[in-house]
Design a protein around this nucleic acid. Structure first.
Lengths: 348, 348
DNA sequence: TCCCGAAGTTCGATTTAAATG
DNA sequence: GCATTTAAATCGAACTTCGGG
C-alpha cells in the first residue's frame, strides 16, 4: 500500500506538505503552485489513496450513517431506501444498510456493529411491527442523531417521519363514497401496528362527515404477524370469509396494498370481478400496485420524500453535534395522496 | 470515549495485558484467571468498546464486503440481497450496499468509496443492462476478490454466478408445449442483455426437440432500456401490437416476469382472459409473481442461493488472500426451476 | 513580518521484545 | 527456563510547533 510518506519521498517534500496540499488545508494558501503540482503528480503516479482508518482515527469522524430496516423484503422499503440513498449520496455520507429480519438478536448485533463502526447518524425503517424497541437504552447515551421512519416514539430524543394515516384513511373512504359506494367492507390493520388506529380514525371521521353508516359485520381485522407476506394471505382469507358471509358489499377498503391484492385474488376466484362488481382500494402505493391487473387505486405514501426527510433530520443533527449545538428531536408527519387507478369504479 | 488505557488504569494493569486478555490472544494462556477477571470487569464497568479504526489501521483488515447493485428498485434484487446478507452475517462480515442507478458516474464514485473503506471483497449485482463495465481497470490491480451475479465476464479474474438461462428457456417452452399449446407468441429480451440470447437458444432447442415450429410473426423483442419498469411497459405495448395483428396464439412466453405482467395487462384489457383464453409464462419468479391475479407460472431463479453462493466465493477468496494462496476465479451456473401457478392452463 | 517547509506529537489498539521474580 | 507483566514501536494521516529565508 502506498502511504503519504511514499508520496513525500517521490515528490521530494515532507509528508506534512503533502498532507496540506492534498487536503487543500488552510495552510495550502502559502504553498507555491509548483510544489502543489509536483506533489499532485507524485500522488497520481503512485495511485495514492489516503487510508480512511488513519484519517478517521485522527479526526474521529466516519462519514457514515447507519440504516436499519426491519424487513428488506417488504416492498414498502425499496422506495424509502432510494430516497435515503439519494440524499445521503449528495451529502457524501456512506450508508451502511442492515436488515434485522424483525429479529431481536439481529437488531442487537447489528446495532453493536454499527456503533463499532462509529456511525455518525442512524435511520431506522420500522416498516412492519415488532415494537418494544429499547433502542433508547443503547442510543440515548451514545448521542447519535437518530430518525425513525414509519413509527413514532414517545421519547423526544429520537426524531420521526411518518405519514399522516388519519388523512390517508379519510381520503380512501371519501373516494369510495364519492363514487357512490355505500355498502363497504373494511380490512383493518393489526392492533399492534401503530398505523392501524389513526388510519381507522380517519375512516370513521370520513364516514361521519358524509353520513355513512358502517356495518360492523363488514369490518375485519388483520391478525398480528411479523411477515409482510402474511398481509396478502390474511387479506385473501378475510375476504373469502366476507364472501362466504353473503352480506353484500360493493367496495372494499383494505389496510394496505398487500392485503388489497389478497382481497382481489379472493374476489376474482369467487367470480366477483374487480372493479366491475366490486371496487378495491389499498394503502401505500408500493411498486406492484401500478403493475397489477387491475392496477390498484390506493393512498400513496411519499416514500422517497420520507426517506429524504429522515436524512435531512439526521444530517442536521450531525452538524449540530459537530458544532456542539443542541438540536431537539423533530417529528414530521407528511401528507399522503390519493392515486386513482383501475380497481375502483363509480356506481353512478 | 473510553479507551484501552482507561481500562488499564481502572484495572491496574498495563494496556498490553488488557489487549491480550480481551482479545484472548495466544499469550493469554499465561495470564492467571484472577487478572483476567479483574480486567474484564473493568472493561464491562466502563463500557469499553474497542476503536475499530485503530484496530483496522493496525491489522489492515476491515471485515467489510462491498455490494454494488445496478438498480435497487428492480424486484429481482431483493431476494438476492437477502441471500447475500444472510450469508455474510454468518461470516461476521459487514456488507456495505451501494446502488449505482445504472449510472456510470455513481458506479465510479461508489467504487472509489468502497475502495477507500478498504473492503476485503466485492459482490456486484448486475441485474439489468449497462454493460461496458471496466471494473477490471480499477479492480484487477487491487486484488480484491470479486464476484458478479447475473452477468458473466470474459475475464478470468472475476468470478460469477449466473442462472442457466438456456435450461430455463427450455423448461418454459417445454411446459407450454406439454400443455398442448402450439401457437405461441414470444417476447424476447433486449439484445444487449447477456441473458437474452441463451434463453432464446434454450427455447429454440426445446422447439426443435418437440418438433414445434416457431412463427416469426409471433416473435417480438423488448427494446433496450436501463429501467426495469420499462420491461413492464414494453411487454404491454408489444402484446397490444400482437393482438392488433390478429394472428391467433394460445400462449405467450415472456422474457421475464415484468414483461409477463405487462402482457397480462394488455390481454386482459383486450378482453382476452388469462389463463382461460391465453396462457402466460414469465421468468425470474420475483416476489410479485405469487401475488398476481392470476398468479404467474414462471421459471424461478434461485436468487437467495445465488446470493449465498457469491458470498461463498468471495469469502473463500478473502481467506485465500490472507493466506497468500492463489485462488482462481470460478464461474457457477445454477439450475432454474419451473414454478407452475395459475397463469398457464392445459388445452387438452 | 511574511512565506515555506520539516520535525515531532497525537489518535487507539496490537505486537514485539524484554524485564521482572 | 518459566510464568507474568510491560515499555516501546508500529500502523497512516493530520495538526501543532518551530526554524530558516
Amino acid at each position: 500500500m502506498v502511504t503519504i510518506r511514499d508520496v513525500a519521498k517521490e515528490s521530494g517534500f515532507s509528508s506534512t506538505t503533502v498532507s496540506i496540499v492534498l487536503n487543500n488545508a488552510p495552510l495550502a494558501r502559502y504553498i507555491p503552485p509548483v510544489t502543489k503540482k509536483r506533489i499532485e503528480r507524485a500522488a497520481q503516479k503512485l495511485g495514492y489513496r489516503p487510508n480512511q482508518f488513519a484519517r478517521s482515527l485522527r479526526s474521529k469522524r466516519s462519514h457514515t450513517v447507519g440504516v436499519m430496516v426491519f424487513d428488506m423484503t417488504d416492498p414498502y422499503c425499496t422506495l424509502v431506501l432510494r430516497g435515503i440513498e439519494n440524499t445521503l449520496y449528495q451529502s457524501s455520507y456512506l450508508p451502511i444498510l442492515t436488515d434485522v429480519h424483525n429479529e431481536r438478536s439481529r437488531f442487537e448485533r447489528y446495532l453493536e456493529m454499527l456503533l463499532d463502526r462509529r456511525i455518525e447518524g442512524l435511520i431506522v425503517l420500522a416498516n412492519w411491527l415488532f415494537l418494544d424497541i429499547n433502542l433508547l437504552a443503547d442510543l440515548e447515551k451514545s448521542s447519535i442523531p437518530t430518525a425513525m421512519i414509519g413509527c413514532e416514539l414517545e421519547t423526544d430524543s429520537i426524531s420521526s417521519v411518518i405519514v399522516d394515516n388519519e388523512v390517508g384513511g379519510y381520503l380512501a373512504l371519501e373516494h369510495l363514497h364519492s363514487l357512490g359506494h355505500r355498502k363497504i367492507a373494511f380490512i383493518r390493520g393489526p392492533k399492534a401496528l401503530t398505523d392501524s388506529s389513526p388510519r381507522w380514525r380517519g375512516i370513521r371521521n370520513s364516514a361521519k362527515a358524509s353520513g355513512l353508516e358502517l356495518d360492523p359485520r363488514l369490518i375485519l381485522d388483520l391478525p398480528e404477524s411479523r411477515d409482510p407476506m402474511s398481509s396478502f394471505e390474511s387479506g385473501q382469507k378475510l375476504t373469502e370469509e366476507l364472501i362466504r358471509q353473503k352480506r353484500p358489499f360493493t367496495a372494499l377498503l383494505a389496510f394496505d396494498d398487500m392485503s388489497a391484492f389478497g382481497a382481489i385474488r379472493a374476489l376474482t376466484r369467487a367470480g366477483v370481478r374487480v372493479p366491475e362488481h366490486c371496487s378495491v382500494i389499498g394503502f401505500d402505493d408500493i411498486a406492484t400496485s401500478a403493475l397489477y391487473t387491475p392496477s390498484l387505486t390506493t393512498v400513496r405514501q411519499p416514500m422517497e420524500a420520507m426517506g429524504a426527510s429522515a436524512v435531512g433530520i439526521v444530517v442536521e443533527g450531525i452538524n449540530g453535534v459537530l458544532e456542539k449545538r443542541e438540536i431537539p428531536a423533530c417529528h414530521r408527519k407528511v401528507a399522503p395522496e390519493l392515486v386513482v387507478r383501475e380497481s375502483t369504479r363509480s356506481l353512478l
